[in-house]
């Protein structure tokens, strides 16, 4: 076991060029390039080491009854269904996201929405990736549903399925500016009501502030 991590260190440096070519999760098959890398890397490593290296994490396609059904119903709407480091996720088209969520809630029994968040991929034509993390108590399984939305597009609200999505969607709106269609009370939650800007976007600098708000409400000039 002491050897394998050393091996990993070599692998890390060697696979740097490969990983930098696939920054972040691209549109659909995020796993495909990584899958291709995994068999290549150990062979490229120093062959003198006796113990086999620990396998790099790779995304395996997730085939099961649910994904088959979804693929059958939605075809290309189901962009990807894979498993990465033992966690299953489905990437769907933004327009069918709510229906997929409803299927998972009603038919598959995912009764708890653990988390609802968003990741910003600015270079993409659909930069906002909304992630729903669902849990089924009966089956003790988690599943992630991911969908992409463009600037100005509205994501569907999950509050009619899980009331707990209320504050989570408000926070996504607050931090990213992504609106949720059908949300009962979409307003900012962490930042002041009249704050301009959405901080967790990648084009919002870390030291940026709404200077107008600071000037008006605190009476000082923002130092940064």
């Amino acid at each position: 076991m002491a050897d394998a991590p050393e091996e990993k260190k070599l692998e890390q440096t060697e696979t740097k060029p490969e990983t930098s070519s696939a920054p972040g999760a691209p549109e659909a098959a995020s796993a495909a390039p990584a899958t291709a890398l995994a068999p290549a890397a150990p062979a490229a490593a120093a062959p003198a080491l006796p113990t086999p290296p620990a396998p790099k994490p790779a995304a395996k396609p997730w085939e099961c009854e649910l994904t088959q059904r979804l693929k059958h119903v939605y075809g290309s709407g189901l962009r990807d269904a894979a498993e990465y480091v033992g966690q299953k996720y489905i990437a769907v088209d933004g327009s069918i996201a709510h229906e997929v969520l409803r299927i998972l809630h009603d038919d598959e029994g995912y009764d708890m929405l653990s988390d609802l968040t968003c990741v910003h991929w600015p270079k993409d034509e659909r930069p906002f990736e909304v992630v729903w993390i669902l849990y089924c108590f009966a089956k003790n399984t988690y599943v992630r549903v991911k969908a992409r939305y463009a600037e100005g597009e509205e994501a569907p609200t999950a509050t009619n399925l899980w009331p707990g999505a209320n504050w989570m969607e408000r926070e996504v709106f607050d931090m990213f500016g992504l609106r949720f269609a059908g949300h009962p009370d979409l307003r900012r939650i962490l930042l002041p009501e009249d704050w301009q800007g959405h901080p967790l976007r990648k084009d919002y600098d870390i030291r940026q502030q709404d200077n107008e708000w600071v000037r008006k409400n605190l009476g000082i000039e923002s130092g940064q």
């Binding site: 990993k8 260190k9 890390q12 696979t15 740097k16 990983t19 696939a22 920054p23 972040g24 999760a25 995020s30 990584a34 790099k56 994490p57 995304a59 990465y84 480091v85 966690q87 996720y89 653990s114 988390d115 992630v131 993390i133 988690y142 992630r144």
Partner: peptide, 12 residues
Amino acid sequence: PKMLKPPAGEVY
């Protein structure tokens, strides 16, 4: 490694 660079991916 000293400089941590996890491969691209997500985890919950």
